Computed example of a mutant assay.
Amino acid sequence: MAHEGGGKAILAALTANLGIAATKFVAFLVTGSSSMLAEAVHSVADSGNQLLLLIGGKRSRREATPAHPFGFGRERYVYAFIVSIVLFSVGGLFALNEAWHKWAHPEAIQGRWWWVPLAVLVVAIGLEGFSFRTAIRESNPQRGKRTWAQFIRTAKEPELPVVLLEDSAALVGLVFALIGVGLTLVTGNGRWDAAGTAAIGLLLVFVAGVLAIEMKSLLIGEAARPQQLQAITDALENGPEGAISRVIHLRTMHLGPEEVLVAAKLAVGPLERGADIAEAIDAAERRAREALPGTQLVMYLEPDIDRGPQERAQWDNAPVAADSTYVPDEPGEVRDMGHSR
C-alpha cells in the first residue's frame, strides 16, 4: 500500500537525520559556525517531523467511533500540517535569528578543527542523498507520468511529499552551508557564514509554506482525482441491467489518503418496484468499488427521475451539452465537482 512505501521513506530519513544532527552539533561545538548550528537544528527538526508522520500514520488507523463515524484517516493530514509548523518555527525562524546575530557580530572559523565542518557537510550530503534516493524510489510507482511538482501538488498521501520536500531542502541547505563555511575559511570573514545561515533559513521558511498550503487543502477536503471520478461515473452508469441511465451529479471527498466519500444522484428508468431500484443501486455500488480496488469507498447513492440535461440547465441559465454527465440538481448548484488542487 501507499502508506507502507511512505513508511520506508520516513524511516530512512529519520535514521539519516539522527546521525547527521549528532555530527553537526559536534562540528558546531568545535568551530562555533552558525551555519553548522542552523543545519544541526534543521536536522533535529526533521527528525521530530518524521516521528510526527509515524505517529500520524499509526493514529489514522484507529477504528471509527460514534463521535467520529468516518474514522481518523485525516490524522495523517493533521500531523503533516504540524510538520510544516515545526519546519517553519524550529528550522526556518531559528536559522534566520542566528544569521541576524552572526551578521551583527561575525566570527571567523579558527583553530586546528577548521576542517571538521567541511568533513561533516560532505558526509551529511551523502546521507541525505541516500534518504532522498529512497524517497524517490518509493514515490515513483505512485507518481506515474506526473511531474514531481504535480505529484507534490496532487498526492493524497502526505508522507512522501513531506519527505521529498524535506530531503530536497536539506540537500540544498547543506550546499548553502558548505559555501558559507568554505568562504569563511578562505576569507576569514564570518559574515559569509551568516549569509549561508540566512539562506538556509529562507529556504526552510519557503518549504514550510509550500507544505502548509498543500496540507491545508487536504484538511479542508479534496475531491477524488479526475481519473477516479471518471472511473466511478463509468462504473455507476455502465451496468448490464441498464436500470441507471446516467449520473445526475456526483460529489466526492477524501476522508483519508485511501478512503473516499462518494455521494451521487442517479437517474433510474421506469422500474416498477422499489426492490428493483434497490437492486440496481446495490449493483452500481459494487461496480464502483471494483473499479477502484485500492481505494475504500464510503458510498451514498440516491435514485431520481431523469428529467434530461437541457431541462436541468434551464434552472441555472447555463448551457449544457446534451451528453453532459454532471448536471445541477438544484438551481444555482455547481456543475463540475472534479476540482482538485
Rank of each mutant, 00 (worst) to 15 (best):
A149H: 10
V172I: 10
V44R: 04
A278F: 06
W114H: 07
L53S: 01
W115K: 05
A27M: 01
V181S: 10
S60G: 03
V262C: 04
A45W: 07
M337R: 15
G269Q: 13
D276T: 05
A45Q: 05
A278Q: 12
D234T: 14
V247W: 00
H105E: 14
V116H: 01
A22L: 14
F206Y: 15
F70T: 05
Q142R: 14
S139T: 10
W103F: 15
T65S: 11
I305C: 09
V83I: 03
K216F: 15
A212T: 13
A264Y: 01
T187P: 06
G332R: 06
L118D: 01
A313W: 01
G256H: 03
A224T: 06
I220L: 14
D336T: 07
R246V: 06
A149P: 13
G201A: 08
L160Q: 15
L93A: 12
W103N: 09
E138P: 06
A278C: 01
H339M: 07
S139N: 01
V162D: 08
R312E: 09
G338N: 12
I277V: 12
V30W: 01
E159V: 12
N238E: 08
G294L: 12
E159M: 10
A67L: 15
N140I: 15
V26P: 02
P141E: 04
A198D: 05
A288R: 02
P66E: 02
L271C: 14
T15M: 10
K24W: 00
M253A: 14
L271F: 04
F28L: 02
P69R: 02
I10N: 01
E333C: 07
V320I: 13
L51E: 03
E311R: 11
H249F: 11
A224W: 04
P141V: 05
A198G: 06
R225A: 14
S43N: 13
V181A: 03
I152K: 03
E279A: 13
P309L: 03
R312V: 00
E4L: 13
G144A: 08
E311H: 12
V162C: 09
E333M: 08
K156A: 13
